[in-house]
Design a protein around this nucleic acid. Structure first.
Lengths: 143, 143
DNA sequence: AAAATTTAGTTTGATAGTCAAATTAATATA
DNA sequence: TATATTAATTTGACTATCAAACTAAATTTT
């Protein structure tokens, strides 16, 4: 099996199963009610302070309508807090609750393990090659 | 920016946007009505002959109920043909139509371009390193 | 051969995620 | 003050998904 074929295989599998993979990593024990999508929203809100709907929607690449639905559910589940801004009453500020921050940190561990699993046993030169390939992949996707 | 951080960035972006990325690649001109999901089904059916619902559903990792819905839509759009087996009248055989095969080949080109974009300018040694890293990533996801 | 079981696929009912367009409420501008 | 703009929500429509109920056909048991 040549490298092109193999790369293709891995990427196709990744594309097809990425949601399932993430879901499995997230939905463990305490955080059974968090979907992969929920986690993307949590990641976008971030640990730091509160952000308004429009900016979070933009960084997720969804409409604010879509985000409203997602936030409704996250508020109901207790991961996110929603507060109307005092300076501008049109603006809704969303932030992570205690529970939301814990879930976020829990998910970061999954990321770290994943990265660790990939990078471990690669020499500095090998890591550089991987980085080079990924930058290219990223560039390919952005254009 | 160190490699761990960078890897994480790229993968997070990939996780979040993979559907949009694929959709954009698929929905060009002639194939505007094919969703990323449709394409996964088309890939699973494959160019070769006809396959029954259960086996395709299994290789996609979805229930046959879900596949029924997807195939309904693909048949309506003219990408897939559905025939009841003569040997066993319970079995439904699905295969790509002319149009379906063309769409499949069109999508393969996207894959090839993507792979090309990643691999180009990598030496044989570098390609080997990349392969090693991807095998690890794949193994991490499978377990 | 009739009855029971298994198998293949579809249908149904429910939920999540998505968008575009309509709506509401607040702020900014003319 | 009236108008326009902005922020967010709501509505209506669609896709994707599953589990469970169902239908039809084939296989096995009695």
């Amino acid at each position: 099996m040549n490298i092109n074929h193999m790369l293709n295989e891995v990427l196709v599998r990744l594309f097809r199963n990425i949601n399932v993979i993430e879901e499995r990593a997230i939905c463990s024990g305490e955080y059974k009610d968090v979907t992969a999508n929920d986690m993307h929203v949590i990641e976008a809100i971030d640990m730091e302070g509160a952000r308004n709907m429009t900016s979070v929607a933009k960084s997720l690449g969804v409409t604010t309508g879509t985000l409203t639905i997602a936030v409704n559910s996250l508020v109901k589940k207790g991961y996110v807090e929603r507060v109307r801004s005092e300076e501008d009453r049109r603006v809704v500020l969303i932030s992570l609750s205690q529970k939301g921050r814990k879930a976020y940190l829990h998910h970061q561990q999954f990321h770290e393990q994943m990265i660790e699993a990939i990078v471990e046993e690669l020499s500095a030169e090998e890591q550089a090659v991987l980085e080079k390939a990924l930058v290219k992949l990223d560039r390919f996707f952005r254009k």
